[in-house]
Amino acid sequence: MTHALPEQAPAAPERARVWPEYAFPAGLLALGVFTLVDAATIAVPVSTNTVGPRVFPYAVGALLVLAAVLVGLGVRRGERAEIEDGEDVDTTAATDWPTVAKVAAAFIALVVLVEPAGFPIAATVLFGAVAWSLGARPLLRPVLVGALIAVTLHVLFTQVLGVFLPAGPLEGVPGFG
C-alpha cells in the first residue's frame, strides 16, 4: 500500500524563484551594514581599557556581511533554498497569502486586545480566528474550543502557577484574578 499522502503531487518543477533567493542575503547585508554603522555610535566609557562594548558588535556585523556575501555567491552558483520539510507542510504548494494574512491579523488582534480585554478573551479571539483561518468550520466551534482552552490556561497560570495574566473585564471574577 502506498503510504504517501493523498494530495502530494510529484515534485514541482523548479520555479523561477531567483529573486526571492537574493532577498534574504540582501536583508542580511543591510543588517550587517547597519550593525557596523550603529556599533560606531555605542558610547565607550573612558574607564574601558582594552576591549570595549564596540568590538563584538563590529565582529557580528562583519560576520553578517560575510555570510550575506557567501550566500549571495552561492545563489549565483545555482544554490537554491531547500524548503524545510514537515508533517503538515505541503512543500509543493505555493504560498497561501490570504491564510497567512488572516493568521497575522488574528495575532495582531491578540496584541491589541490582551491588555484591555484580558487574556481569556484575547486568546479566545486568537485561537478561534487562527483555527478558522486554517479551515475549522463553522466559526462557532473553534471559538468555543478556544474559549475553553483560554479559560483553562488562564486559571492554570494565574491561580495554580501564580503567573500574572491580565484578566480584563473579568477582573474580580473568582478564579480569574
Binding site: M1, T2, P6, E7, E87, D88, G135, A136
Partner: peptide, 13 residues
C-alpha cells in the same frame, strides 16, 4: 483531511 490521522478513513487494506 483535517488531521494527520483519521481513523474514520479506510486504509488501503
Amino acid at each position: 483531511g483535517a488531521s494527520l490521522s483519521d481513523p474514520t478513513y479506510a486504509t488501503e487494506e
